[in-house]
């Protein structure tokens, strides 16, 4: 499917989309609270320790996990290390340029990182090998490959799916501190499965899981990361507009209603392997 990708949306198209939204209609026929179809494939990159590809409508994101033994952070000597990196590559859309990470790449990676970390998605304290010396370092790399909006949710889902898919070698440590890797591989100590739910505010309407055209005409967006227990573990507002407190709470209610299904799909994908 190749349509002309606008980088600036023509005014008539903008007005059409905005007036449709006002009437409760969306460009792709969804209702305001309707999430696009989510597809999760895991184990898509054989050399990674865990990987996943997530499709959200036409939006596609791949994420891979590599683990290695290394030094802990000095302020957490007995915990594993989690590093999240994301890059909006030109392959995914003509609006992305090659070059060093800009604020959008950094924001995306940091929002996903906060969601995973605040939810303790991985029990990092169980990933220490020799406290203070050697711990597992978990690198999550997120690469959107086709852009039809809502990279935050798709990236969060891809990252979590890749973590659920990750297997690390079982280790044994002798008293003198020699580490040996067994052939046997074990899953990461997963503690929670946070999912991200993003809303676009267009006029005074909130729509969940915005597509690219909706993102072009939106005033602002807000993302909630929701844990399995329904708590909020991260929030991020973006865009040039603002929200009333009532809008925030209304979006949150919808996010909490949608989250369990997304989480269930991640779990189902993890069990399919």
């Amino acid at each position: 499917m190749s349509e002309k990708v606008y980088t600036i949306i023509p005014a008539p198209r903008r007005e059409t989309i905005r007036s449709m939204i006002k009437r409760g209609e969306r460009v792709d026929g969804r209702g305001p609270d309707q999430y696009r179809e989510l597809k999760v494939d895991t184990g898509i990159a054989g050399n990674a320790d865990g990987s996943a590809k997530v499709s959200l409508g036409h939006t596609k994101v791949v994420a891979g996990v590599k683990v290695s033994l290394g030094q802990p952070y000095p302020d957490a000597p007995a915990a594993g290390v989690l590093i999240v990196h994301a890059e909006l590559i030109p392959l995914a859309s003509p609006i992305f340029e090659p070059g060093p990470p800009d604020e959008n790449d950094v924001e995306l990676a940091r929002v996903i990182d906060r969601g995973l970390r605040s939810a303790s998605a991985i029990k990092l304290e169980d990933m220490s090998v020799i406290p203070g010396k050697q711990v597992w370092r978990v690198f999550v790399d997120i690469y959107p490959i086709d852009h039809d909006g809502n990279f935050i949710d798709a990236s969060g889902l891809a990252a979590m799916a890749a973590l659920l898919n990750t297997r690390v070698p079982k280790l044994s440590v002798t008293p003198d501190g020699t580490v040996t890797r067994a052939e046997e591989k074990v899953p990461l100590p997963i503690n929670d499965i946070p999912v991200f739910v993003t809303f676009a505010k267009i006029g005074d309407v909130l729509v969940v899981d915005p597509c690219y055209e909706e993102e072009l005409v939106m005033d602002a967006r807000v993302t909630f990361a929701i844990t399995k227990s329904g708590n909020v573990c991260a929030i991020q507002k973006g865009g040039r507009g603002s929200f009333t407190p009532e809008e925030i709470l209304k979006a949150l209610d919808t996010a909490q209603r949608l989250a369990p299904e997304l989480c269930a799909q991640l779990e189902a994908a993890a069990h399919r392997v």
């Binding site: 906060r114 970390r117 605040s118 939810a119 807000v222 844990t227 329904g230 708590n231 909020v232 573990c233 991260a234 929030i235 991020q236 507002k237 929200f243 925030i248 709470l249 949150l252 209610d253 909490q256």
Partner: peptide, 9 residues
Amino acid sequence: LQADGSFSR
């Protein structure tokens, strides 16, 4: 609006 940690509605 940003947040990290754990908050109920």
